[in-house]
Design a protein around this nucleic acid. Structure first.
Lengths: 149, 149
DNA sequence: TTGCTATTGCGAATCAATTGCAATAGCTGT
DNA sequence: ACAGCTATTGCAATTGATTCGCAATAGCAA
């Protein structure tokens, strides 16, 4: 967890300024364990600063992503919305339940192994992997089987 | 490779009709080894039938996806465009080079292993995995290192 | 050939995300 | 504390991929 001061100085080092809007958005991202999209961040932030504009949220998320403080994620197959989560979690991937929309985190070294093997084989260098799994969680499997009968 | 007749009958079985537009779009998807998005399918098809509309391309791609004749894919980190490829290839994943935009296919059993392990552990059932890798291919690694210096 | 209805072309609508711009407000140096 | 530079904001308009409504058209089964 970053202290506010070090975060502020990181912003400054990047020639940026600490504004109330950014403080607010940062605090929301810091407090939540969820994966939020821009709309949801906006909705929560707006309750505390009714003047906030959604463009500011998008711009702030983009900056935080550039600074590698948050990670952009996609969930579900037809992923057309970007979600964000704090980076200070270990390497992990996501499973989205199509029944209850719950997101379960998947931890495995195998994805990184794939990258290493492929690099060794081809000489390529990885910068990013987007992995999203989809299906039905244990609770929803039965419901889904009933549906498809 | 499906024969045209069996494809036509599969369409009919689904209560659909074979139209010149669909024939055209199917032939383009059949001939190419590339991964095409709707715009590119449209561009290529339009050369042969200048009356074709892009909405028809989107609708046809959607039908083919529902019939599981083609697979929807995303490439690159900020994937906001859907690409399609024929399904009659083995299980594989994609690496996109950020330098030359080349797409390299990655074959590995490890992704499926991750799914199996997670299923065994949690009881979840997978329906789909979206995996896209990104980085620099062997040819572009050096250029990229020069850029970031 | 007829009739039913799936399909098409067209334009308008969506929806998440981005951008241009003038007004505002951090921050640095004095 | 102040002044000045410029990063940032709010707002409205725009983008870009994709979808949708609808009237006209055209497959296809009888």
């Amino acid at each position: 967890m970053e202290s506010k001061n070090s975060l502020e100085s990181r912003l400054r080092a990047a020639g940026r300024r600490m504004t109330p809007q950014r403080k607010l958005i940062l605090s929301i991202l810091d407090q939540t364990g969820d994966h939020l999209d821009a709309e949801e961040v906006y909705r929560r932030a707006k309750q505390q600063n009714s003047n906030l504009n959604i463009a500011t949220v998008y711009r702030t998320l983009s900056i935080l992503k550039d600074m590698e403080l948050i990670e952009q994620r996609y969930f579900a197959r037809d992923h057309n919305v970007e979600y964000y989560e704090s980076v200070n979690k270990g390497e992990h991937y996501h499973f989205t339940c199509l029944g209850c929309r719950k997101i379960i985190e998947v931890e495995t070294p195998k994805i990184v192994q794939v990258q290493k093997e492929f690099s060794a084989l081809t000489g390529a260098k990885f910068t990013h992997a987007c992995v999203c799994f989809e299906g039905y969680c244990a609770n929803c499997v039965n419901d889904e089987e009933n549906l498809t009968l």
